[in-house]
């Protein structure tokens, strides 16, 4: 199968959906002729023109809020934030408007908007360009939150997100953009809310998502040499969460390590741990262990950043802990 990069997969998914549905359009910062800060809109302006692909001023509340209004009135806008860290600025449009409008209005309208935004650290980009805020948005009823880990998943999930009638936050890890992987030429979609076993195993379940899936897979490879069989479950969507997949895997392996790049407190990982504690505690042979960022802002100096963010060695150590508990 041919291989394309994660960012090319984003472009392909967007272009295919724009060809399929004339109401799909793209706006954000530098998404036009510039092609997006990370190349995720490259070629779209040339193919679809300034009517459907256009640049916005640096006014996040304005242009994300417009996405809400446009989505409520017949468009399917894909709004790109150049860095997800700035999602704090349009948070009212997302939390108080997009997430609630359908419910608050008794189901009389829908807000089929996709907000795409790069997340993540390990780039020495410091405290305002390295964040992963998915936990905050997974907390909000009415928003779907997706974080793909491979080019294949990115394309299939983005196509589903564009077709979804709800507001979807689509977070793309910056460290994944240039990574290549197999993506078929043929049309396919991946349903939102379904986790994926990226590596089957029998001794311990490692739940991860986004860039952490790669670290978990590398750790699993290393642990295999020690005779530890790790199952890596990629959540892919953190809201809605595939509880069934999590519980099935934990019931099989009876041990759970949760890996996330973002902070520990009140996070996706905390939710996964709570679900397992509520519904599968009797199956566990060891306490749940979480590998997360430390609860401080992401520091600049790589020495500090690497200390704060989870590393492959942390995952290896966590798995050893639960296996030898």
């Amino acid at each position: 199968m041919r291989e394309i990069s994660f960012s090319q997969a984003i472009v392909e998914a967007t272009a295919e959906e724009m060809r399929r549905d004339p109401n799909v359009c793209v706006w954000g910062l530098d998404v036009g002729p510039y092609g997006g800060a990370f190349g995720c809109t490259r070629g779209l302006y040339e193919e679809f023109g300034p009517e459907r692909v256009f640049d916005m001023p640096i006014s996040e509340l304005g242009y994300v809020g417009m996405g809400v209004g446009a989505a409520a009135t017949g468009l399917r806008p894909i709004v790109e934030l150049q860095f997800s860290d700035w999602i704090t600025l349009p948070s009212d449009a997302l939390i108080n408007q997009a997430a609630k409008m359908r419910y608050m209005f008794g189901g009389v309208l829908a807000v089929p908007m996709v907000l795409r935004a790069p997340v993540g650290g390990y780039l020495a980009a410091a405290g305002q360009h390295s964040n992963s805020y998915e936990s905050m948005f997974a907390h909000i009823p009415g928003l779907k939150v997706v974080l793909p880990s491979t080019p294949y998943d990115a394309k299939g999930l983005l196509k589903s997100a564009i077709r979804d009638n709800n507001t979807v936050l689509f977070f793309e890890h910056k460290k994944l953009y240039e990574i290549k992987g197999p993506v078929p030429q043929e049309e396919y979609t991946i349903p939102l809310g379904k986790a994926d076993i990226k590596r089957p195993g029998s001794d311990v379940t490692v739940v991860a998502y986004a860039f952490m899936v790669r670290k978990a897979l590398a750790a699993a490879e290393q642990l295999a040499q020690e005779g530890i069989s790790v199952e890596v479950l990629d959540l892919r969507t953190v809201s809605p969460l595939d509880e069934e997949a999590i519980l099935n895997s934990v019931k099989k392996t009876q041990r759970l390590v949760i890996v996330q790049e973002t902070w520990r407190r009140c996070s996706v990982g905390a939710e996964v741990a709570a679900i397992v504690a509520e519904q599968a505690l009797d199956y566990l042979d060891a306490p749940i262990v979480r590998v997360t960022a430390r609860d401080v802002p992401i520091p600049f100096s790589p020495v500090l950043e690497n200390y704060v963010l989870p590393q492959e060695a942390d995952i290896v150590a966590a798995v050893r802990r639960v296996v030898h508990a």
């Binding site: 109401n23 359009c25 009517e51 459907r52 509340l61 304005g62 242009y63 994300v64 809020g65 417009m66 996405g67 809400v68 209004g69 446009a70 989505a71 409520a72 009135t73 017949g74 468009l75 806008p77 009212d92 449009a93 108080n96 408007q97």
Partner: peptide
């Protein structure tokens, strides 16, 4: 809209939608 100014970007987006459609 219970958020002061909350409707302003929404109306602006509806106008964008009307124009594109």
């Amino acid at each position: 809209n219970g958020i002061v100014s909350g409707g302003i970007p929404i109306a602006t987006g509806a106008a964008m939608s009307a124009r594109l459609r």
